[in-house]
């Protein structure tokens, strides 16, 4: 069954035709070319495909594209502005939060969801926010540090 839907992706309204069984992850990567959203486990365990759906972090592999109709989606591609990289992105580069990079866009999205509600999170809150994001390189310590530094840099 085909559905005509609209998604507001990174601030831009996009119209697309999706099949019922198509996931939001597939729609973002294959139809809209947003390959910053990574395909990891397909089971909601790894968090590589994390996006913000109406401001809340979700695994895009666990949401049907049609379920997201008319929703606002933020992917890692939407973090930077004309003025440059987002403070989280800069901090991930400066403090080695990116090792192989596969988990990084999901980590950035989970961190963004955290900073949206808590401007100066404690380490424990950062760890809790990253429970659903796995890093196969084991770069957790640097990822946590990157988020801490970024949150301090923000006013």
């Amino acid at each position: 069954m085909k559905h005509e839907i609209q998604l507001i992706v990174n601030g831009e309204t996009r119209s697309l035709t999706v099949e019922s069984q198509q996931t939001l992850l597939e729609a973002l990567r294959e139809d809209l070319g947003l390959t910053g959203v990574k395909h990891g486990c397909s089971t909601g365990e790894c968090g590589a495909c994390s996006v913000l759906l109406n401001g809340e972090v979700v695994n895009s592999c666990m949401v049907l594209a049609v379920e997201a109709a008319d929703a606002e989606i933020l992917t890692a591609e939407g973090l930077a502005t004309d003025e440059g990289l987002h403070p989280l992105q800069k901090s991930f580069i400066d403090h080695h939060g990116v090792q192989c990079g596969y988990c990084a866009s999901g980590m950035l999205i989970s961190a963004k969801a955290l900073l949206n509600r808590t401007s100066r999170p404690h380490e424990e809150e950062i760890r809790e926010a990253l429970v659903g994001n796995l890093c196969r390189c084991g770069a957790y310590a640097d990822i946590i540090k990157s988020i801490q530094v970024a949150s301090r840099a923000r006013r």
Binding site: G44, G47, S50, V57, E128, A129, G132
Partner: peptide
Amino acid sequence: LASPQIRNR
């Protein structure tokens, strides 16, 4: 419970 991603869905 679970993770923020799962709790939100």
